[in-house]
Design a protein around this nucleic acid. Structure first.
Lengths: 160, 160
DNA sequence: ACAAGATGGTTGTAGAGACAATCATCGGGA
DNA sequence: TCCCGATGATTGTCTCTACAACCATCTTGT
């Protein structure tokens, strides 16, 4: 089976996307680390909790929404628990399961952190694009997601 | 200074992009790990060397092109050197500097690995987009890069 | 010619994620 | 009812990256 190499246009698009993949996470991460001593992933975990009913979610559900393996999430939540931003308690309905809940402190922390984070996202993504490009981006990222995340775990909330 | 929150369209675009940022690197990484026991970053290092004159580059230049800190690159190259995919030797013109060169083994490895990698990129990115979307993607990623990588280190080769 | 700062690179240490192994509980079939 | 496979979660180990400290060489100004 012969390889279908990328033509010049495809190559340009891919190389630039790869560069964004490499650089953008670092930018977001530094800002959050610097201003809030939070990983981007930790921030995302807290954000997902904040949107859930009672700010509570089962570990498995939280892992899905944040695209983490359960072991990873377990470690992260343990750390967040140490900082009293999140708390864990056994799930009443299922003794195997654990619930994670955003604490009042965590909620405050999130509210204090969100503006800076949004500002960073604007500065490096939203505000450098035209409104038309923003719609295009939604379409493009959506298409890629369908192949990379067929079950729609990560973007479930915002889908269609 | 009041926060300019994201409206619904912007939010959709951003959430999807964030999901891609989170998932796509993992997909690329697994394929390379599985089929070639190579990190995506290691692959990228070798790819950059393969395109350089004499397949040789100074550590600093290589670090820039691959968006790594020098310490990171140093560790990675040491590992690759252990597998005889890359070799290091002092730079003749500047005794402080070190050159990294792709070995014959490394070159073979890269040629053997490239088709599978390209196939993965096609499957999850290129082939799920229309030709029009591919051009749009180049524009969008280009705009983001200008704010995130103003010096154009990473995408220098393919720019304009 | 020499000192002082800048540049190029490596090493050590600590933190975060991947993966495998493990444990506890649930659910379904004999 | 009891057993067994499936599910939910945690822990331990290994690898990789970031950051800081460090050393060597180059360059500039006097």
């Amino acid at each position: 089976m012969r390889t279908r190499w990328l033509d010049e246009t495809e190559m340009t698009a891919w190389v630039r996307l790869a560069a964004v993949l490499e650089l953008l996470p670092g930018v977001l991460d530094s800002q959050l680390r610097r201003d809030a001593e939070l990983t981007h992933y930790e921030y995302y975990v807290m954000a997902m909790l904040s949107e859930a009913p009672k700010r509570t979610l089962r570990m498995t559900a939280l892992a899905q929404r944040t695209n983490a393996t359960l072991p990873r999430l377990s470690h992260v939540v343990k750390r967040l628990e140490g900082r009293e931003l999140v708390e864990r308690f056994p799930c009443p309905e299922d003794a195997r399961a654990t619930n994670a809940r955003l604490t009042a402190t965590g909620w405050k922390k999130l509210r204090a952190t969100a503006p800076g984070h949004v500002e960073t996202v604007r500065q490096h993504v939203i505000d450098v694009l035209t409104p038309e490009q923003i719609s295009q981006l939604a379409g493009i990222a959506g298409a890629i997601l369908e192949s990379v995340d067929p079950d729609g775990n990560l973007s479930a909330v915002y889908r269609r």
